[in-house]
């Protein structure tokens, strides 16, 4: 984007400098064409459809904002995604930290273990939770065999099971984003803290942790946006009370064939996501995650 802005604002003074500006623009072309054709164009069609399908009116949007169903689902979605994000961040942070301070072999080993579940199909992973968490599942059997509980715990079909599975799916990504951010922290800063009197914990608390926060914020937003779109996990592991917006959109589109309504819901989700990202960015500058200046 910046390359294009640079190209249009400053008139090229010399042939060489104009070429220097055109080349980045050319390099962006395939990606831009791809995005335009497969993202922006469908998005525009979706936008048009959300009005046109209801006789060129805001009817679909009226339903969205007046129906208690949509309000509730949207709130559930944001709430579930937020909690899943926070848990994923808390669990991922120590792993990413250990990765950062580990050397070649140990790092490769941990990364392998982090990514093994990532390579397993999401549906298979979700089904595994059914087997683990059921009344006759491994966990309840263990708890009952050891006499900790006498009747099976209700581990499935509630927000607990949805969250635990969502967090499991989100963890590899969260770890890898945090790891990437932590790798960018200058290790000599830790050495500087240590030589100037900070023990390991103090060096972590006063230097490493504050410097890792931009990465945490960035990972948080990415993971949150990803969580908003969860579909299979709440459908299989949740009760209807845990219904998330993606499920509702899916029902509108594929069962009720109400594509106007589905488009409107999709657009509102997109707008809400963008808004949240914008507000978030206002307070926790994301530019730092992309390696920009943190001024």
């Amino acid at each position: 984007m910046t390359a294009i802005a640079g190209h249009t604002t400053a008139p090229p003074r010399m042939a060489a400098s104009s070429r220097q500006r055109i080349i980045p623009a050319l390099l962006l072309m395939p990606c831009l064409a791809w995005i335009s054709f497969f993202f922006l164009l469908p998005l525009a069609l979706m936008c048009w459809r959300s009005f046109a399908a209801k006789g060129y009116s805001f009817a679909a949007y009226t339903v969205l904002f007046t129906s208690p169903l949509y309000t509730k689902v949207m709130l559930t979605t944001v709430k579930t995604a937020s909690i899943a994000t926070v848990i994923a961040l808390i669990l991922a942070y120590p792993v990413a930290y250990v990765l950062t301070i580990s050397g070649g072999f140990r790092r490769a080993l941990i990364l392998t273990f982090v990514f093994i579940p990532y390579w397993v199909d999401i549906i298979v992973r979700t089904f595994s939770w059914l087997i683990l968490l059921g009344d006759n599942g491994l966990i309840n059997k263990l708890l009952m065999a050891t006499g900790i509980v006498h009747t099976p715990l209700e581990l499935l079909y509630n927000s607990f099971s949805v969250l635990i599975a969502m967090v499991q799916i989100l963890l590899p990504l969260t770890i890898i984003i945090l790891f990437g951010a932590m790798l960018r922290i200058d290790r000599t800063l830790i050495a500087a803290a240590k030589i100037h009197g900070a023990g390991s914990w103090q060096a972590f608390r006063t230097v490493f942790f504050p410097l890792s926060l931009p990465g945490v914020y960035g990972a948080g937003l990415l993971v949150f946006v990803l969580s908003l779109g969860f579909y299979v996990t709440p459908a299989l592991l949740g009760s209807p009370r845990q219904t998330m917006i993606a499920q509702t959109i899916m029902v509108e589109a594929s069962e009720l064939l109400d594509w106007g309504q589905a488009s409107a819901a999709g657009l509102v989700l997109l707008i809400i996501t963008t808004l949240i990202a914008a507000i978030y960015n206002r307070y926790f500058s994301l530019d730092r995650l992309w390696g920009g200046s943190d001024a």
Binding site: S67, P68, L69, K72, V73, T76, P240, R241, T243, T248, V251, E255, L256
Partner: peptide, 11 residues
């Protein structure tokens, strides 16, 4: 029916 049922189900 679908909308009413889903609302009922989720509340």
């Amino acid at each position: 029916m679908q909308r009413r049922f889903q609302l009922w189900l989720q509340s």
